[in-house]
Design a protein around this nucleic acid. Structure first.
Lengths: 197, 197
DNA sequence: GTCTATAACGGGATAGAC
DNA sequence: GTCTATCCCGTTATAGAC
């Protein structure tokens, strides 16, 4: 995979951002990681902001592929299990997903002051909320769509909050995972209690 | 207030970080905002990391003061209301709290790659969790302490996740507020359902 | 404690050859 | 498309006077 240089640069960008952060991303280091010259990076991505924007798209796609692959591989799963794996994928030791989480968190923080990142960020967020809302529909078909959407927003936002704490060393991974698992149960109970007659 | 230069620099740092982010913080701009020379900034805080570390402590103290002042001013309040105000303070238009939220979010993101910030960050996080757990004790005295602690961790982490989304323009403030309000209700219901006999 | 002036450097970005 | 070489600007941090 990644025979073409352009993809190699994007993969290297995700790795480098995960290791050094957006602020710590040096074009030279990125180029070295990808095994190309700095000039080629600028040839493909115009400038620093372009690198960041395309990396955000790249990791979003990659995370989606992982999530779908997981869903398909182990045969049909219980909706509750699907929710757990979808939301907790990034807490796994699998390095690519850890990379994704770090890069994601960094780019989100970066978007506060770099408005050109916001479009991609909003789209990616909406996709995740929708995905989780879909799984909630499988688990709680009797609940109202509005309630499920709200639950999906809370669960995905909570995941991001827990992820930030874990990445900054405030929370241990297993505890983050546990809290998120409980949150899924709490939200499922909430939706069951408010199901339409 | 802030007759001494040192405090003036810290206030200016919070304002400047809120406007430009940690990444966008320039010593020169910070000094201008505080009305002092760049050399004085370095005299008081040694280096860039020192500025960040002391600013983190400064805004943590300031947020705590605001929260306590709010609790005391309007007479005794319902625990549920106290929870709402404690967690939602930062979503208010009050500029100082908006400053706090932005700076907080920025420093949290920065701590991932600047380990010297982690100590202050962990302490501040723990203080918030404890504060919310205390309010939950007032509201749900029959629940187990462990369950209340877990709820407090989820609520504070959710607040941080929602705050990050809001700051990056993905979520409107009133919607963030609404989701957090519902989360408080959901957690209170959960604690009521699992109360000790 | 506080200033002015400046050293020192990192790193983004490009020119031009192949 | 890809490289080598380099320009040049912004930023951190300090020296030294008051």
């Amino acid at each position: 995979m990644a025979t073409d240089r352009r993809t190699a640069i994007l993969e290297a960008a995700a790795r480098t951002i995960a290791r050094r952060g957006v602020r710590g991303l040096r074009t030279e280091e990125l180029a070295a990681e990808a095994g190309v010259s700095t000039a080629l990076v600028y040839y493909h991505f115009k400038d620093r902001a372009g690198i960041l924007r395309h990396t955000l798209e790249f990791i979003t796609d990659r995370a989606k592929r992982h999530s779908l692959a997981r869903q398909g591989s182990d045969g049909p799963m219980d909706p509750r299990e699907l929710l757990g794996t979808a939301l907790q994928l990034e807490f796994e030791t699998l390095s690519e997903m850890h990379e994704n989480a770090t890069t994601w968190s960094e780019l989100r923080a970066g978007a506060i002051f770099e408005p050109e990142l916001r479009g991609a960020l909003a789209a990616a967020s909406a996709a995740w909320v929708q995905h989780v809302a879909g799984l909630l529909t499988l688990a709680r078909p009797a609940a109202s769509a509005a309630e499920r959407d709200a639950s999906a927003e809370r669960l995905t936002a909570l995941r991001e909050g827990l992820s930030a704490r874990r990445l900054s060393g405030v929370l241990r991974p297993d505890h983050a995972r546990e809290l998120l698992g409980e949150a899924i149960e709490v939200e499922l109970a909430h939706l069951a209690a408010h199901a339409r007659p």
